[in-house]
Nucleic acid binder design. Structure first.
Lengths: 231, 231
DNA sequence: GTTTGGATAAGTGGATACAAAAATCCAGTG
DNA sequence: CACTGGATTTTTGTATCCACTTATCCAAAC
């Protein structure tokens, strides 16, 4: 039901697809450091193909904003500056707000039940300190914006979640578990259940921006070892 | 000052870039029909290179949503269904609304002067029935959302404008010139000048959605010869 | 007259080869 | 000992080639 919105993990039918999925996953998990250079030949060797399909995968990843491609300069892991991270959240806030607005008229009891279920799973992962928290969090959001029924909108939001994921991950791993998120998510759900479209949209916007400021606060002091790279 | 937000027309430093720019322009101008298949060999021959760089250009265009790429099935011109067109406008509305919100605190007299200038140029093109109208319209919008100073946001909005462009073009060419747009743009400018951020954001959202419904109205009856293709 | 099957043509995906560009290394110079 | 300039190595960009998939066409069968 939830489908692979943010994690394309189907079997690959072409070598390019395989390379794309491989790198996409690695980047989401933060396995490469921002600014690190990706050498097509090396990656090709790792997964047993020539560098051509890897190059094409690079192009797609670049379009996703996960890597940067410069002529004759190769492929480097993108990473987000603090400004870019904030920008991604700003964009997410209006897009997910829109998604909520569009979903509202369609919401029924079954949807609320599923949301409750997903929220419970999210909270359990949070309490356990499990690294699943980030995934569960994405699933929770994905379920909601998925109800908008707007394919392009869904894809764009999912792409933003992916770009943000490595930062959510280190945030969750390094600092205290986001307990504040609990209340926020509950408040969001209440707004959705209330049936007040404008209120629900606003609540979603606020929630997303709220997460942004928590993350920014964490990222701003000394933590400049990760994810910084000039433009 | 306005820069090539929606029309990358710099000189190409690689063959891939050249192919991309060539196809990008052709697609914007609606030179290919939706659903039409693009054969790499043919395009390569047209611009004097091998198929390899053209294939890579295809990937970028696919990421822009301008073409669709299916394994072993080649590259077809994407085109938008009526639903997709509406969706693109919905997304534009919140993104351009956000851009306005972010731009508001920075606006000064010089910006309003430039907007007046751009609006005048837009209106003149409209009266003359010139096909420049679509370009001028993009420039007008691009100037405003450009003032947000948010690179990712700007890129996303620009990409949407490009995807929409062919439809704006036939709309403008086939039906009566969008006179209503005149008042709307003026109202938008007034809102920007008023300094009321919330009002300005709402005005931009409304303007974009307003354009959508005009276009949808035009596109909905018999006009199913262009831009339809299954999912 | 339509359908089916299969030969043939066209097109795609990927690997390899080669040329051009950038990065690296190193010796000579100040 | 830092710096410069150039040879060497590495990497990127593009062309070409081959294998395999998909599309097209045509004739035989119903």
């Amino acid at each position: 039901m939830i489908a692979n919105l943010s994690s394309p993990s189907q079997a690959a039918s072409t070598a390019e697809e395989e390379a794309y999925l491989y790198l996409h996953k690695a980047l989401r998990l933060g396995r490469y450091k921002a600014g690190e250079r990706l050498i097509p030949e090396d990656i090709a060797a790792e997964i047993g193909m020539s560098r051509m399909p890897v190059r094409e995968a690079f192009r797609r990843l670049a379009a996703d904003g996960l890597v940067t491609l410069r002529p004759n300069r190769g492929c480097v892991v993108a990473g987000l500056t603090l400004d870019e991270l904030n920008e991604a959240f700003e964009i997410r806030s209006v897009l997910e707000g829109l998604a909520v607005r569009l979903a509202m008229p369609k919401l029924a009891e079954e949807h609320f039940e599923e949301m409750d279920r997903l929220l419970l799973r999210l909270e359990r992962a949070g309490e356990a300190g499990s690294s699943d928290w980030v995934l569960r969090h994405q699933e929770f959001h994905a379920y909601i914006y998925g109800l908008s029924g707007r394919p392009k909108l869904i894809r764009q939001i999912a792409a933003l979640h992916v770009a943000i994921e490595p930062y959510m991950r280190i945030w969750f791993d390094y600092v205290e578990k986001p307990l504040s998120a609990r209340d926020e998510h509950q408040k969001l759900l209440d707004a959705l259940k209330s049936g007040d479209t404008a209120e629900a949209e606003r609540e979603m916007e606020d929630h997303v921006l709220g997460t942004a400021s928590l993350l920014a606060e964490f990222a701003s002091p000394g933590r400049r070892d990760y994810g910084i790279h000039g433009q």
